[in-house]
Design a protein around this nucleic acid. Sequence first.
DNA 1: ATGCCGTACCGTGTACGA
Length: 263
Amino acid sequence: MEPVKIATWNVNSIRARADRVEAWLQRTDVDVLAIQETKTKDESFPWELFEKNGYEVAHFGLDQWNGVAIASRVGLEDVERTFVKQPPFKEVAEARAIAATCGGVRIWSLYVPNGRELGDPHMQYKLEWLDVLREHAASLLDADPGAQVALMGDWNVAPEDHDVWDMAFFEGKTHVSGPERAAFRAFLDAGFVDVVRPFAPGPGVYTYWDYTQLRFPKKQGMRIDFVLASPALAGRVTGAAIDREERKGKGASDHAPVIVDLD
DNA sequence: ATGCCGTACCGTGTACGA
């Protein structure tokens, strides 16, 4: 197979970020981009932005919250909105997961629930959401151990202590709790591989920096955006990078894009 | 310089983010 470059990026509004997303696509030349937090419904999604740059795009957005998409110039087939048995929040299956087969790879663009506070109902929702997603992901490998699957997006979990700038700051907060980390680790136990960390090891390597408190220039961030690859896909990875340059300047998303190169 | 919060919404405030 020919080399393919795939990426994931929480853009924090596709409309507010349209110019930066277009410039980034042209600069990086990625083949597939999984997008999170488009913050729009289909009617206001900037379809032409992708089409004029040679990408097909599938979007799943219900309102101004959440919203996920996949843009591809290596095919976009069998689009799936929500995963099997995806748990609802307040009786709504939110726009947090979309899948498509691009160049033979089953791409999932994922925006894991935030959790809000330990003890908040949103936290239980987050854990259940991750648990059911893992069941679905594991079932794909059961059905075909050679399946090429990429679970990519904003996981809203910092799996290791050095994935946050100061563990003391996060004491009692979400993203670093035992249950969240266990829910993330279950994907690794199921055979999925964090294919970025070996190419971008910590400490001090992050994908997200809060807009407030000068977190970015102070290098106070979190690693919460991941590409988890099935074994067959992990075997094709030749490189990976977190594009922290994209976090600089006016009009940046609070998340940096994460790029993976496939052989 | 990487620079002092941002996004969407019938909205001059509120919800949400992590």
